[in-house]
Computed example of a mutant assay.
Amino acid sequence: MTTSAPPYSRYVPADLSDEALVDRARVELLHSTVAYEELMRRYQRTVFNVCARYLGNERDADDVCQEVMLKVLHGLKQFEGKAKFKTWLYSITYNECITQYRKDKRRRRLYDALSLDPQEEAVPDPAPLDPGHASLDRVLIHVNPVDREILVLRFVAELEFQEIAQIMHLGLSATKMRYKRALEKLRNQLDNPF
């Protein structure tokens, strides 16, 4: 960690790299959140899009984004910088999405056990944020979660395979193979819609 300027000196957060902002945030968090806020501003939209596409609805995505931001806020002091900040952030996002997905899955099983239709309980989700991605959103809902996670990390978060491998705790070749298979399934879904 190399922070040359004192935390109270003036700086333009948008001009700093992620690493410099992380260093600043770690020093400042007791009395200022300027650097942290800039980090979140940079990644908030992409984190939300990753969550929305993974979970299939914006309401849950918004909740998960809030959890991610809190985990980043509380975890910055322990962030060691062994990976890029972006990789660490998406690792937290990925884990929070999995947690939310499992909660939803348990809830759906409960509805089934009680013979309730979860569709009756659910409030319809608003339209996707970007009309250009509407078809991707529709297809991702029908792709299994294992395939969805790697496609979302690659297409929405725009991560490299090595970063995805770190996040998913897989080897690089296993990550590439899963991606290739998921992409083939996605193509089949697009070729043979519903």
Rank of each mutant, 00 (worst) to 15 (best):
Q66A: 13
V22M: 03
A113Y: 10
R26H: 03
Q44W: 02
R26G: 01
D104W: 00
V22E: 11
F48Q: 07
E80N: 04
V64G: 04
D60N: 07
A182K: 00
S4H: 08
R59N: 04
V146H: 05
F48Y: 14
A134N: 08
S135K: 06
Y179E: 07
Q78Y: 03
R106C: 12
C65R: 09
G56C: 11
H142D: 13
P7H: 01
Y54A: 14
H74V: 05
H31V: 06
L30A: 04
R109C: 11
P7W: 03
T175K: 02
Y43W: 11
A20Y: 00
D130Y: 14
A83V: 12
L183G: 05
V64H: 00
K82C: 01
P193L: 07
Y111H: 13
L21P: 09
P13C: 09
G56D: 01
L39I: 01
T175S: 12
D104G: 12
S4C: 04
R42A: 11
L16P: 11
P145I: 12
Q189N: 05
D60V: 02
T3A: 09
D15Q: 15
K86G: 02
I141S: 07
S32A: 07
H74Y: 06
R187S: 07
R154S: 07
L29R: 10
L110T: 05
G81C: 04
A165C: 10
G81S: 05
V50K: 09
R26T: 06
D23E: 06
K71Y: 02
H133P: 00
P6L: 10
E96C: 15
E149N: 15
K176A: 14
R26I: 13
D62S: 13
R10S: 11
Q189E: 07
G56R: 13
A127V: 11
R187V: 12
